[in-house]
Design a protein around this nucleic acid. Structure first.
Lengths: 115, 115
DNA sequence: GTCATAGGCAACCTCCTGGTTGCCTATGAC
DNA sequence: GTCATAGGCAACCAGGAGGTTGCCTATGAC
């Protein structure tokens, strides 16, 4: 299992993407963005428990991981999902799961031999 | 998108699993364990840059996330992959990817309308 | 029984994360 | 032009993460 999800050198590595997903608040933000629409920071802040600064920090982490993209529109910054990265991560998990599926067979043999 | 990967209340949540995967060293350890065999802490430490304590800490995080399982054998503790959890995480990603695929179509419409 | 090996426990340190507050500028509504 | 809104920047704080070191016990080899 390699640490590289994508072949683009500028793409974030697997651990960066998983670390970005490894926070309940960021998962909640991604869930909000999952309606396919753009959202401003204020809109994302309005219905949540955090301050605008905290939301901005989380969005920055998600953007660095390539999971969202932002666009300035006047005084507002709009955020939207960048589904390409989650698809890349999903393919990565598929590959890992297949590798581990075959490993699981060997492990079962090993465990049964130990019993 | 829900934060619950599995229906078992004792199963770790999505953010816990992703956080466990969100470290390059833990990914490297999982890669080492990916051969389907058991490994002791000393064996995992021997070829890596970290002390035995650091490796033990990482293995603890992976075990809390349900990604590995440990078994004491004499003076050694053996670790092996717990492929069930990675398969659960993989299905989660599949579901998320499908949700975001449909969202992507709507987002494209939105972006094209803005251009 | 002795020695080497394996690992658990705890304390320590540095750095980072997560969140808030204050202040400022830019933009939009009127 | 004025006021409200939106957001960027920086500093601060508490707690946690990641790693090391020291010490101890348990187990295995001989």
């Amino acid at each position: 299992m390699t640490n590289t999800i994508s072949k683009k050198p500028s793409d974030p590595s697997a651990d960066i993407i998983f670390a970005a997903l490894g926070d309940a608040m960021r998962l909640a933000l991604l869930s909000r963005l999952n309606d396919g629409r753009n959202h401003s920071i204020s809109a994302l802040t309005a219905s949540g428990p955090l301050t605008r600064q905290a939301v901005t920090k989380h969005l920055y982490v998600l953007e660095q991981a390539g999971l969202v993209q932002s666009r300035r529109a006047g005084r507002e910054t709009h955020y939207a999902l960048r589904a390409e990265t989650i698809i890349i991560a999903q393919k990565y998990m598929d590959q890992v799961s297949r590798q581990w599926d075959s490993a699981l067979g060997r492990l079962k043999d090993f465990v049964e031999r130990e019993v």
